[in-house]
Amino acid sequence: MSTASSTVLRGRVWKFGDWVSGDDGIVRFSELRNFADDHDPAELARHCFAGLVPNFAERVTPGDIVVAGRGFGIPSHPPAPMALRAAGIAAAVVESTDTAFIRRSLNAGLPVVTCPGITDAANEGDVLEVDLAAGRVTVNGTVFAVKPFAPAMLEVVDSGGLVPYLARYLAGNARA
């Protein structure tokens, strides 16, 4: 479930360990040969975490949130965050990841938040809330202060990804 504002997201936690890569963990590069293409979302959803969580695509609820350890999504190509989105994941809150994955995910409409300490605080199935604008992650009564998203990033999230953002920008309707 997600709340009304696109910058405050609330969902049930799926928890992963350290170094779940974008190219062989979130999806498998070898099974998505055309790594920069638009794939059918339903097909991508089936690939999401297919090697890690049996039947993930059937078990996930739209609005669920991924919590993961260090190096989440490294390395990656565009299908990785697209698959997370297609499966219904609303956000990822991770110990660490690289800028390429953060931007790649944002462009797919998936906010990724770096939050050191999150894997100690959150357990599978917990309800987690992340406020992108305020820079706040809340789970089990623990509140983490994280780097707030810049206005330009919030606008991409609000648009639902980079392509809808560009449509908004080109129409003269973007604020950032």
Binding site: A100, R103, R104, L162, L166
Partner: peptide, 16 residues
């Protein structure tokens, strides 16, 4: 490295 955001530079001369 800005990944897929390179498309922004095809329409605009700035980014974050």
């Amino acid at each position: 490295p800005i990944s897929t955001e390179v498309i922004v530079s095809m329409v605009r001369d700035s980014n974050w």
